[in-house]
Design a protein around this nucleic acid. Structure first.
Lengths: 223, 223
DNA sequence: GTCTATACGGCGATAGAC
DNA sequence: GTCTATCGCCGTATAGAC
């Protein structure tokens, strides 16, 4: 059962949802296709089962990690800290377990797809995204909502690509740098993305007009 | 002919390579499947034709834009400038043309995929990537190769996700921010990614030991 | 629970009429 | 160049024997 899902996970990670057939899935897993059906239903249900299997564990770890950082930082939240807290659990799991690497590739696949898989992704990940966005707001209470979401866009794009398991950078750099160097990615990700978010949110244009009554926010470029 | 490729482009952008069948492609394009074969060969050849159609135009525009920026900046290259020069042509094309938006989604799809499509992507885009990386080296001559490639990884990830045409941010932000606001993405992308690259490359650990013959390499991280 | 047999449709691909 | 006819295969899915 676990073995079947591991196999499905690996295949979906490698070839995407449409790249694998139900029968081949059964064949590679070494079970009869009918048996696979008996357990999981049709192909879509199997995919959903794979997608959902590790989601709660990852989310709980992330929420716990983020809460712990908030606790330790008190009023003094740092970008690097909230970013590290967000991605640490995932990268640590990826670093030690191939199943997790495959799972992350599937998450990246779904996140990069259009269409009906949106719902599946949202169901699992939107809550954590909102928690992270709430942290950004705490760090930048005077920055517009828009700029917070733009920041999130670039952050999540870089993250998605980093966990997708493509070997693009390996090829470009002739193996000097590889996304399979999970800890190398993990170490740099919060640094880079903190820089990106800072650059976006600390522009004068990113600041919203104060909602307080006595508007002292004069001379900014755009109010 | 052009019309056929536009249709194929739109379908591949929406559903990915494996999400579309050759017959449906013909049906939606309003031509007989045999005719489609007569023109393009099999499905893979059609996909390649679509992928290659706009590549040279985009690349030439990028190389020109990058050369123009180098020219204007002289010895004083800025991160924002090289980033802007790199992505400007693509975003401008996307902003005015749906075909280009579809094409970019396909590029993002291929870039996010594992497997044999690597070659197709590399053939078209590696050259420009190397040009961009060369610019990064000019800006940071003392930064390690590794750090340059890590910078490129996060940059290209954010870019890939930004052009992929998913509506994830639209959903998260309840429509406040949308990746279909091409100019909004374009405007912020160089700012954000310059911040990211700066954060990575201006750490002391990112600096490499000097390569001069009188190697004083000793104990300093910074030279 | 597990495997066999089988239905049916759609897929990619070819031959050939016009 | 364009369309019809048709092939064999593989896809998902079901019924039912053991």
């Amino acid at each position: 059962m676990t073995q079947i899902m591991d196999t499905a996970e690996a295949l979906f990670a490698e070839e995407g949802y449409n790249g694998v057939t139900f029968n081949r899935l059964a064949e590679v897993a070494g079970v009869d296709a009918s048996l696979l059906r008996y357990y999981f239903g049709d192909k879509e249900q199997l995919f959903q089962a794979v997608f959902r299997r590790r989601g709660p564990e990852l989310n709980q770890a992330r929420l716990k990690s983020m809460a712990a950082y908030r606790e330790s930082a008190g009023k003094n939240l740092q970008l690097e800290g909230v970013l590290d807290a967000l991605v640490r659990p995932g990268f640590l799991l990826m670093a030690q377990d191939e199943g997790w690497r495959n799972y992350m590739a599937i998450v990246a696949y779904v996140n990069s797809s259009r269409g009906p898989m949106h719902a599946l992704f949202a169901e699992t990940f939107h809550y954590v995204s909102r928690e992270f966005i709430a942290d950004l707001r705490r760090i930048y209470p005077n920055v517009t909502e828009e700029e917070i979401y733009w920041s999130y866009l670039f952050m999540t794009g870089a993250l998605t690509f980093s966990i997708s398991g493509t070997k693009r950078i390996d090829a470009l750099s002739n193996g000097l740098v590889s996304t399979s160097d999970t800890m190398g990615v993990f170490h740099r990700f919060p640094i880079a993305m903190a820089g990106a978010i800072r650059a976006l949110c600390e522009r004068p244009e990113a600041v919203r007009p104060p909602r307080t009554r006595k508007s002292r926010r004069a001379n900014t470029a755009r109010d």
